[in-house]
């Protein structure tokens, strides 16, 4: 009697188990199908097609001709391409400044001085504004005789001696970089605040007893604890600097030597219909960005493992 019941139970369990196994496969396939389909259709397929296109002389319509590496050679010999790559340097330097500013305000704000949520909101809000709006706001801000110039005139400097911020090729790229910092600094700041808040606060008290000032606290406690996220943001800044688009697109439309890589690529692809060269440009850029991205992952892994080694060594030493 009991044996019978037992075998029945076993069968029941086996039945439902196999049933659940089938169901599991079904649920995995149905839930994964659409996201993976979209991922392949709009990210990976275009990526591989682009590699293919980069070897042809072609437009969106009409015949195409195999040209081998000619497009790539052109990317590295065209003045406008090289200039665009050079411009990334400006934005990269800007990102370093941006991260430094973000670190400063993140440190101040994570100790929650009075009004910190107001200041945090003010500094973060620009990140939410549409790139096109940011473009217009700064076009107005910098155009000769408008906002910035009016402020400078308040100090008694005549309009004639103020440079054309957006046309003077010596300064216009720096001016655009500043608006980029204005736009993205808050985002870095919020990330850093998140990291600083999770730093072990008992260390501050211990340091205070040892007579550490605010700078020591930042240099020896905060910075080492959030090193990973700072470095990751620095590395991400490289791909950010390579893919600047909206700000120069709206403010100067790439004129006066401000055409960044994407502004140029957009023009070549959609205005001049030089799909082959634009594809080669994109492949070059993506290769750079992927190298940067993989480095970032490796750095993170290395730092994580290294950190645990160091701390365990320290522990051993202190013993």
């Amino acid at each position: 009697m009991s044996a019978k019941r037992k075998s029945k139970g076993v069968e029941f369990i086996r039945k439902t188990w196999s049933n659940m196994k089938v169901q599991k496969i079904i649920v995995i396939i149905t839930f994964l199908f659409v996201p993976l389909f979209l991922l392949v259709l709009f990210t990976y397929l275009p990526f591989f097609k682009m590699v293919e296109f980069s070897f042809y002389d072609m437009g969106y319509i009409g015949s195409r001709e195999w040209v081998g590496l000619d497009n790539y050679i052109e990317v590295f010999t065209r003045d406008d391409c090289l200039n665009a790559l050079k411009l990334s340097g400006y934005y990269l330097l800007g990102s370093v400044v941006q991260i430094a500013i973000a670190l400063l305000f993140a440190t101040i704000l994570s100790f929650k001085p009075k009004g910190s949520s107001f200041f945090r909101a003010m500094l973060y809000f620009p990140s939410l504004i549409c790139g096109i709006s940011v473009g217009f706001i700064f076009k107005y801000f910098y155009t000769h005789g408008f906002v910035l110039d009016s402020i400078i005139q308040l100090f008694g400097i005549p309009l004639d001696s103020i440079p054309f911020w957006l046309r003077d090729t010596k300064i216009n790229n720096w001016v655009l970089v500043i608006s980029s910092i204005w736009r993205y600094m808050g985002q870095n700041m919020i990330l850093f605040i998140g990291a600083i808040v999770s730093v072990d606060t008992t260390q501050y008290d211990a340091a205070a007893i040892d007579g550490a000032n605010a700078w020591h606290r930042f240099r020896y406690i905060i910075l080492p604890s959030i090193k990973t996220i700072v470095i990751i943001n620095m590395i991400l800044a490289i791909s950010g600097a390579l893919s600047v688009f909206e700000i120069p697109y709206v403010i100067t439309n790439g004129g006066f030597g401000t055409s960044t890589y994407f502004v140029l690529m957009d023009k070549l692809a959609h205005l001049n219909q030089k799909v082959g060269i634009a594809s080669a440009m994109a492949v070059v850029l993506l290769t750079l960005i992927l190298i940067v991205g993989i480095t970032q992952k490796l750095v993170k892994k290395y730092m994580d493992s290294n950190y645990s080694i160091i701390s365990s060594k320290k522990r051993r030493k202190s013993k």
Partner: peptide, 30 residues
């Protein structure tokens, strides 16, 4: 837990590194 779980995560991470504008030349064709 199934084969390909980690691969799928990696595919999405790599995709996130690719800026949207870069691939639009071919996305347009598709």
């Amino acid at each position: 837990k199934f084969k390909g779980n980690a691969l799928i995560r990696d595919l999405f991470i790599i995709a996130s590194l690719i800026p949207g504008i870069a691939t639009q030349v071919t996305v347009y064709q598709i």
